[in-house]
């Protein structure tokens, strides 16, 4: 098990290295220097600033410096906000995104699984069709359109919930639902087809032939096995919530990390772009590792293979 973990951690480090290198290259070939935008700086001052940020060093030195600093989680200062470190920006904005993301993931999982199970149990009946219509609508309505629909109905027309900002739990409800819509619909479809497949498995027949009630068969035997594909979907789920947060945080005016990323993109604030990109990658790779571990807990067959792989 320890070996398995070590191997996984190794591959995470390699992936990170590649991602940092690629973002570094991309930012270097980006058109226009960081100081060429609105403010007209004199050549002398620009030269001075280039010096201060180490941008006059040979490219390989800049690269190695960046690697070393990135390993220490230091992405340098923001080009656009004087005196702000990229790390500070991440620290400041991350809590908002974490709360929002966690809420969205919970909503997507809970309701997605529920909808999928109901659809599978009532297969080819009204509830099934209803659930699947909801699911296909959920997939077809992009999160940012969903966000405006929710704002329009609940904030403007009904005045039931705040339209934007992030001050209380009530403020998080609409953005979390908007963020959860698409993955929720995916999970519902995944869960339904997985549940249908499991329900026709031989061991379900065995369980029924033991005289167990429909309910026990469904929840004790089928559900756990049918959950496995959903667990594998947790990785893409995190990705979906993370990238979704770019627009959702913008629409709802939430000062989260996704919003910072978008602002840095429109400002061409390269250090922030690079820093947040690397941070997002770490977040994703770690969450994929966590998903692997959860999978091993649920499916006893996995442990053996990982042990064998470790031999």
């Amino acid at each position: 098990m320890a070996r398995y973990l070590l191997k996984k951690l190794g591959s995470i480090v390699v992936s990170l290295f590649i991602i940092i290198t690629i973002t570094f290259i991309l930012m270097k070939i980006a058109p226009g220097g960081p100081f060429t935008s609105e403010r007209k700086t004199s050549p002398a001052i620009e030269k001075q600033m280039m010096e201060a940020y180490g941008l006059n060093d040979p490219i390989h030195k800049q690269y190695i410096d960046y690697l070393i600093k990135a390993a220490k989680f230091d992405f340098g200062p923001s080009f656009k906000y004087d005196g702000q470190e990229v790390t500070d920006i991440i620290k400041r904005s991350l809590p908002y995104s974490l709360i929002l993301g966690a809420e969205a993931i919970l909503i997507a999982l809970a309701f997605g699984v529920l909808l999928g199970v109901i659809a599978a149990i009532r297969h080819n009946k009204f509830a099934d069709y209803t659930a699947m219509v909801i699911a296909v609508l959920g997939i077809s309505v992009p999160s940012f359109i969903m966000a405006t629909i929710l704002q329009y109905i609940f904030a403007i027309k009904l005045q039931a919930l705040p339209i934007a900002r992030f001050e209380s739990f009530a403020h998080t409800i609409l953005p979390a639902i908007a963020l959860a819509t698409t993955p929720l619909a995916f999970i519902a479809r995944l869960m339904r087809s997985s549940m249908l497949e499991v329900m026709s498995a031989d061991y379900i027949k065995t369980a029924k032939s033991k005289g167990l009630s429909e309910r026990v068969v469904t929840y004790r035997h089928a559900l756990r096995n049918a959950m496995l594909p959903v667990v594998s979907y947790l990785g893409p789920l995190v990705v979906s919530v993370l990238t979704g947060s770019f627009v959702i945080e913008k629409i709802f005016g939430i000062p989260g990390l996704g919003n910072e990323f978008v602002v840095s993109v429109t400002n061409r604030d390269y250090t922030v772009i690079m820093g947040t990109t690397v941070f997002f990658s770490v977040l994703l790779l770690v969450s994929i590792l966590v998903v692997d571990l959860i999978y091993g807990l649920i499916d006893p067959r996995i442990k053996v293979t990982s042990k064998e792989a470790g031999k």
Binding site: A201, D202, Y203, K205, H221, R224
Partner: peptide, 15 residues
């Protein structure tokens, strides 16, 4: 009670 053809698939793998 009943036993089935394929013992590989007739037992619940996660129990």
């Amino acid at each position: 009670s009943m036993i089935f053809q394929d013992p590989m698939t007739s037992l619940n793998p996660t129990m």
